[in-house]
Design a protein around this nucleic acid. Sequence first.
DNA 1: ATCCAAGTACGAAAGTTTTCGTTGACATTA
DNA 2: TAATGTCAACGAAAACTTTCGTACTTGGAT
Lengths: 130, 130
Amino acid sequence: MPKRSAPRPTDAELEILNVLWQRGACTVRDVHRAISRTKPATGYTTILKLMQIMAEKELVRRDESQRAHVYEARLAREQTQRQLIGDLLERAFDGSATKLVMQALSAKKTSAEELSTIREMLDEFERGES
Amino acid sequence: MPKRSAPRPTDAELEILNVLWQRGACTVRDVHRAISRTKPATGYTTILKLMQIMAEKELVRRDESQRAHVYEARLAREQTQRQLIGDLLERAFDGSATKLVMQALSAKKTSAEELSTIREMLDEFERGES
DNA sequence: ATCCAAGTACGAAAGTTTTCGTTGACATTA
DNA sequence: TAATGTCAACGAAAACTTTCGTACTTGGAT
């Protein structure tokens, strides 16, 4: 058995990953402080436990050489984003990237700048792939 | 208080909604048959219970006038898709639709036809909004 | 009338996710 | 060295999701 790939992170796990992606390797304390800013009523041990579980699931790597262990996201943010998008694509969009893009644009008012950025992306994509 | 909006459907709930969107209003039996095709080992009462819960959560409407109750998705597929995308946008993409579209395109090999469809959509979008 | 098939309702178990109290180890400093 | 603060580990409770067995109801066929 080759060791199965990382599972889809849960909501709470994703919040933690967001901190790790934004600030790089962190201690539990760091993550707790960051999350406290937006969700003040979150206990320290709650974050700790979640991060321990994430280490078991291999969503994060843990450096135990210091007393305060240092955690780091195992996958790049973009990789996880692709995983989540791919998952949603299958579960809710019948695999149609076109429909997904369409709903993405109407889910959020998209500015003219963003639209042209996307257009450029499409150009590059067409050159690179296809 | 206006009565809070429908919660994000869970994985199992979304599978049921997919059937309802595809085939229109259905009995539990109908949904069970449809899901059995891809997941043969799913009990009838499991689907029943899920659909009862979904009725409580108001993810579906239930017509009890027949002995076999008839269920219907309360929100259009596109509406739920927008909800799910909007949710993912916040949770994993920091609200950036551009990044999300980018990852969507690389999550799945997108054909030339799809790319040009998306391009047309962008045109329409720019005309309609902005 | 009785039996059977097809339904719903209910409750509980199993699984997963989120929460946090408590304990014990280790460091800092008074 | 004793008190204080910081940390990981653990276990368990709470909340949510998924599963299904069992009981009860109803309509139709014999």
